[in-house]
Protein backbone atom coordinates (compact mmCIF):
# COMPACT_ATOMS: atom_id res chain seq x y z
CA UNK A 1 0.00 0.00 0.00
CA UNK A 2 1.08 3.55 -0.65
CA UNK A 3 2.59 5.41 2.30
CA UNK A 4 0.15 8.23 1.63
CA UNK A 5 -2.77 6.29 3.14
CA UNK A 6 -0.93 5.79 6.42
CA UNK A 7 0.17 9.38 6.65
CA UNK A 8 -3.31 10.62 5.70
CA UNK A 9 -4.87 8.45 8.41
CA UNK A 10 -2.33 9.73 10.89
CA UNK A 11 -3.16 13.32 9.91
CA UNK A 12 -6.87 12.71 10.29
CA UNK A 13 -6.44 11.17 13.74
CA UNK A 14 -4.11 14.02 14.77
CA UNK A 15 -6.63 16.61 13.60
CA UNK A 16 -9.42 14.88 15.49
CA UNK A 17 -7.24 14.95 18.59
CA UNK A 18 -6.28 18.58 18.12
CA UNK A 19 -9.87 19.61 17.42
CA UNK A 20 -11.08 17.79 20.48
CA UNK A 21 -8.37 19.34 22.62
CA UNK A 22 -9.47 22.80 21.58
CA UNK A 23 -13.17 22.20 21.60
CA UNK A 24 -13.84 20.13 24.74
CA UNK A 25 -13.73 21.60 28.24
CA UNK A 26 -13.44 18.43 30.27
CA UNK A 27 -9.85 17.69 31.28
CA UNK A 28 -10.47 13.97 31.03
CA UNK A 29 -11.59 14.20 27.40
CA UNK A 30 -8.75 16.58 26.64
CA UNK A 31 -6.33 14.02 28.00
CA UNK A 32 -7.90 11.39 25.72
CA UNK A 33 -7.50 13.77 22.77
CA UNK A 34 -3.84 14.22 23.64
CA UNK A 35 -3.46 10.44 23.56
CA UNK A 36 -5.07 10.43 20.12
CA UNK A 37 -2.53 12.97 18.88
CA UNK A 38 0.35 10.98 20.30
CA UNK A 39 -0.89 7.79 18.69
CA UNK A 40 -1.37 9.57 15.37
CA UNK A 41 2.27 10.58 15.48
CA UNK A 42 3.19 7.00 16.45
CA UNK A 43 1.37 5.75 13.35
CA UNK A 44 3.24 8.19 11.17
CA UNK A 45 6.57 7.19 12.77
CA UNK A 46 5.95 3.49 12.18
CA UNK A 47 4.79 4.10 8.62
CA UNK A 48 7.93 6.03 7.82
CA UNK A 49 10.04 3.36 9.52
CA UNK A 50 8.49 0.77 7.23
CA UNK A 51 9.04 2.96 4.22
CA UNK A 52 12.75 3.39 4.90
CA UNK A 53 13.11 -0.14 6.16
CA UNK A 54 14.72 1.29 9.27
CA UNK A 55 13.84 0.48 12.89
CA UNK A 56 14.68 3.93 14.27
CA UNK A 57 11.06 5.06 13.79
CA UNK A 58 9.74 2.03 15.66
CA UNK A 59 12.07 2.71 18.56
CA UNK A 60 10.84 6.29 18.62
CA UNK A 61 7.26 5.00 18.70
CA UNK A 62 8.12 2.84 21.72
CA UNK A 63 9.68 5.84 23.46
CA UNK A 64 6.58 7.91 22.74
CA UNK A 65 4.40 5.17 24.22
CA UNK A 66 6.46 5.14 27.40
CA UNK A 67 6.26 8.92 27.66
CA UNK A 68 2.52 8.77 26.93
CA UNK A 69 2.01 6.23 29.69
CA UNK A 70 3.87 8.43 32.17
CA UNK A 71 1.91 11.42 31.03
CA UNK A 72 -1.38 9.64 31.46
CA UNK A 73 -0.43 8.63 34.99
CA UNK A 74 0.48 12.19 35.97
CA UNK A 75 -2.47 13.71 34.10
CA UNK A 76 -4.99 11.34 35.58
CA UNK A 77 -3.47 11.89 39.02
CA UNK A 78 -3.92 15.65 38.67
CA UNK A 79 -7.49 15.25 37.40
CA UNK A 80 -8.44 12.98 40.28
CA UNK A 81 -6.90 15.37 42.78
CA UNK A 82 -8.81 18.23 41.17
CA UNK A 83 -12.03 16.28 41.23
CA UNK A 84 -11.59 15.67 44.95
CA UNK A 85 -11.08 19.39 45.61
CA UNK A 86 -13.77 20.84 43.40
CA UNK A 87 -16.65 18.89 41.99
CA UNK A 88 -17.23 20.74 38.75
CA UNK A 89 -14.34 20.16 36.46
CA UNK A 90 -14.13 22.87 33.82
CA UNK A 91 -10.78 23.70 32.29
CA UNK A 92 -11.66 27.38 31.88
CA UNK A 93 -12.18 27.75 35.63
CA UNK A 94 -8.77 26.31 36.40
CA UNK A 95 -6.86 29.57 35.88
CA UNK A 96 -5.32 30.20 39.27
CA UNK A 97 -1.82 30.49 37.70
CA UNK A 98 -2.73 33.59 35.69
CA UNK A 99 -1.80 37.19 36.55
CA UNK A 100 -4.51 38.09 39.08
CA UNK A 101 -4.47 41.78 38.05
CA UNK A 102 -5.71 40.96 34.55
CA UNK A 103 -9.42 40.37 33.98
CA UNK A 104 -10.21 36.67 33.51
CA UNK A 105 -11.19 35.89 29.93
CA UNK A 106 -13.52 33.08 30.97
CA UNK A 107 -16.04 35.55 32.47
Amino acid sequence: MDIVWYVALSAVIFSIGAGGLLARRSPLVMLLCLELMLNASNLALIAFARMWANVDGQIFALVVMVVAACEVVVGLGIIVALYRNRVAIDIDELDSLRDPTEGAISD
Partner: peptide, 11 residues
Protein backbone atom coordinates in the same frame (compact mmCIF):
# COMPACT_ATOMS: atom_id res chain seq x y z
CA UNK B 1 2.12 40.88 26.29
CA UNK B 2 1.08 39.94 29.80
CA UNK B 3 -2.58 39.71 28.84
CA UNK B 4 -1.58 36.66 26.75
CA UNK B 5 -0.82 34.85 29.98
CA UNK B 6 -4.52 34.40 30.65
CA UNK B 7 -4.19 31.10 32.50
CA UNK B 8 -6.61 29.47 30.02
CA UNK B 9 -5.06 26.13 29.03
CA UNK B 10 -7.07 25.99 25.82
CA UNK B 11 -5.73 29.33 24.69
Amino acid sequence: IRSWQSGLARV
